[in-house]
Design a protein around this nucleic acid. Structure first.
Length: 301
DNA sequence: CTCCAGGGCAAAT
DNA sequence: ATTTGCCATGGA
């Protein structure tokens, strides 16, 4: 083992480590990170090599330690950029809180969920795969499917005898056997969607960079929904989590609808006009509202 | 047993 | 143009 390196990342207020930790540790068996003693342990790929980091709460920010992997001069900056993206640290969310304060039924959130950041999925391929996996099935089963996929096709590194994985690369999944995915209990359709998506990434026809270049939300959404297995919900979920497009509302999301009904914000799940009216008031902060409504589902009614 | 989960697609009205 | 059946599994 190499010498452990630690560095500090400052965070902008409002930020609360425990609220972010809630999202990352919701009783689901997520194989993309582990929570140990109120710290986050996650494997990453830096220039093709596996590294393992630990993120913990520190005064005025976060402390990040390199647990495994060879330290490189530019690595700290790279990790810092990754965490900035993941935790959405480059954003001033006080305008969102001002909008929440204007809504009688939502104003409690600025205290109750104070400092919660929209936790993202920086890698677009992973975000899309995850949103396809999560279609229509309960989350615990979805996490189980993701774990099987990752533990078979993803790279890992050992730390104290425990394996830590990164999500499979598209080049690997492009060559995956449909029948093998079926054995992992993916439906025939989802197996085809995942492999097809991996092939599109592998061909170079789609990348996060190319999508960013498109600029307009409509063009990005159109490019994604043109692919098999990606509808409005999946496209917007990925744009929300990876490209952080504020207006990429995952329409039809059952959790979102439940949150809206719970707060008495819409008459019923088909009240599209009510949904549009509410989100219009949260211009530029639509997906933050979605995320906070998801957060509210974990609070006993 | 039935219903439905962080939907999407294709076939049938 | 809009609705319906289907997928896969498991928890409620």
């Amino acid at each position: 083992m190499n010498q452990e390196r630690t560095f500090h990342i400052p965070v902008p207020a409002p930020f609360r480590f425990e609220e972010c930790l809630w999202f990352l540790d919701r009783n689901y068996d997520d194989c993309m990170h582990t929570i140990q003693d109120q710290t986050i342990v996650k494997a990453l790929q830096y220039e093709g090599n596996m590294i393992l980091i630990r993120i913990s709460k520190a005064p005025d920010g976060l402390d990040v330690s390199l647990l495994e992997g060879h330290w490189a001069p530019a690595m700290q900056q790279w990790i810092e950029a990754y965490i900035h993206d993941w935790f959405d640290l480059g954003r001033d969310i006080t305008p969102f809180y001002q909008l929440l304060q204007k809504q009688k039924k939502l104003s409690y959130m600025t205290d109750a969920f104070h400092g919660l950041r929209l936790l993202g999925i920086p890698d677009l391929f992973e975000a899309l795969c995850w949103s396809i996996i999560g279609q229509q099935i309960n989350l615990s089963f979805a996490y189980r499917l993701k774990r099987r996929l990752t533990e078979h096709y993803g790279q890992h590194m050992l730390h104290n005898g425990v394996a830590y994985y990164v999500f499979p690369e598209y080049a690997t999944l492009a060559g995956a056997d449909i029948s093998h995915l079926r054995d992992m209990q993916f439906s025939q359709k989802k197996a085809e969607y995942l492999q097809g998506l991996a092939a599109v990434f592998d061909s170079g026809d789609l990348s996060k960079a190319s999508l960013v270049t498109m600029g307009s939300f409509e063009a990005q959404q159109q490019a994604l929904t043109a692919l098999r297995g990606i509808g409005i919900w999946t496209a917007n979920y990925a744009l929300m989590k990876s490209l952080r497009v504020a207006e990429a509302i995952p329409y039809g999301d059952v959790g979102l609808l439940q949150g809206l009904v719970n707060h008495g914000l819409i008459k019923d799940r088909k009240d599209q006009a009510g949904i549009d009216r509410l989100f219009h008031k949260f211009k530029d902060w639509e997906t933050y509202l979605v995320f906070y409504l998801w957060r509210s589902l974990a609070v006993p009614a």
